[in-house]
Simulated assay, not measured.
Amino acid sequence: MTFVSNSSPSRTRLGGWSTALRMPPTVALSFAVVAVVVAWSLAPSLFTIHGPVAGVPAEKLLGPSMSHWFGTDHLGRDVYTRVVYGTASSVSSALVAVLIGVVAGGFIGLLAGFLGGWVDVVFARLVDVLLAIPKFLLAVIVVSAIGFETINAAVATGVSAVAFFARVTRSEVIKTRQATFVEASFLLGGSRRYILLRHVLPNASRSVLPLGVLQFGESILVIASLAFLGYGDPPPASDWGLLISIGKDYLKWPWLVYAPAFVTILTVLSVNRISRWLRKTD
């Protein structure tokens, strides 16, 4: 008796996609939050009719209302508008930090794990030194050396993340290098460059994606903290951390702190939730 299977490669692929796209409601909500934040950063003028710099003195320190969702500050500026316009700086800075961490850390981890020997020893000691310094302290040291600007804060945050990307990439490269298909490729005459680019790099990078998403949220938090301490762009910039720093001087009007802090925390929590989901679905 012959059995005919009703399954097909295309149906299998569709089933895999449907499984991947079946996400919990919290993950869907997190994606929605991140989508709104990205839209704010790309086209802030579409989400508010006010300007981020000019204010109306007669409307200073007004509470949240339908006209001013997050209230107004001490200069009569709409806080919601300043939060929206500050998103571009916060998001772009976090992306720069993640890019620096992924490229530099991934390159170090890739060479150390694949070449081994003295290269692995040298890079491992470098990573140990970076890991011995607290991440935020290292960011403060770097931004103090290169200047107080938001882009410099992003570079400092990226440098502080290099060691983490290097360690994760190195461990994944070592695990992939010892796989059977990699050894078989060596025996079949594959060059080191071919094996590195064709087998090792694609498999090792699968664990870097969730870490990169997680680092994106952490970079937003670190850059906001640096801006809060005065290591970012000065006023009238509207970075989230700077808005919180200005608002702390007006404790009788708590929305000046609560509004940017709530947006920052909600964004970071959403990114972290997406990162956990990506690790589970890998």
Rank of each mutant, 00 (worst) to 15 (best):
R177F: 07
S171Y: 06
N152V: 04
V213N: 09
V143I: 10
R125K: 13
P202C: 06
L197N: 10
L188P: 00
R198D: 13
F186G: 01
R125P: 01
L226G: 02
R167K: 12
R125Y: 02
T180Q: 14
V222T: 14
D128V: 01
A154Q: 01
A161H: 12
L209T: 15
Q215S: 15
I141R: 00
I146K: 10
P134K: 03
S225M: 08
H199W: 04
L130S: 07
L138E: 00
Y194K: 15
V142T: 07
V122I: 15
L188V: 03
V155Q: 06
I133Y: 00
V162P: 04
I223P: 02
V182K: 11
V119K: 02
A156E: 03
P202M: 10
L201P: 00
L211Q: 13
G147T: 03
P134W: 03
L137N: 01
E172A: 15
R170L: 08
I151S: 11
Y231E: 06
A145V: 13
L187W: 01
S144H: 05
V129T: 13
L187Q: 05
D128G: 05
H199G: 04
F164A: 15
R170P: 08
I133G: 00
L197E: 12
I223S: 01
P202R: 01
F228D: 13
I133M: 10
F216E: 03
A139N: 03
S191E: 11
V182N: 11
V119W: 06
V129F: 05
A204D: 12
F164L: 15
N152T: 05
G217R: 10
A224S: 15
T176F: 00
V121W: 14
R167W: 01
G158C: 06
A179E: 14
F165T: 12
R198E: 11
A153R: 03
L126C: 05
H199L: 11
R170H: 12
L130P: 00
F123V: 14
S144P: 01
V162Y: 05
I146Q: 04
L131K: 06
S205T: 15
A161F: 06
L197M: 14
L226C: 05
A179L: 09
R198M: 10
A163Q: 04
R198N: 08
V127T: 14
L229G: 03
N152E: 05
L201F: 07
L196E: 00
L138V: 05
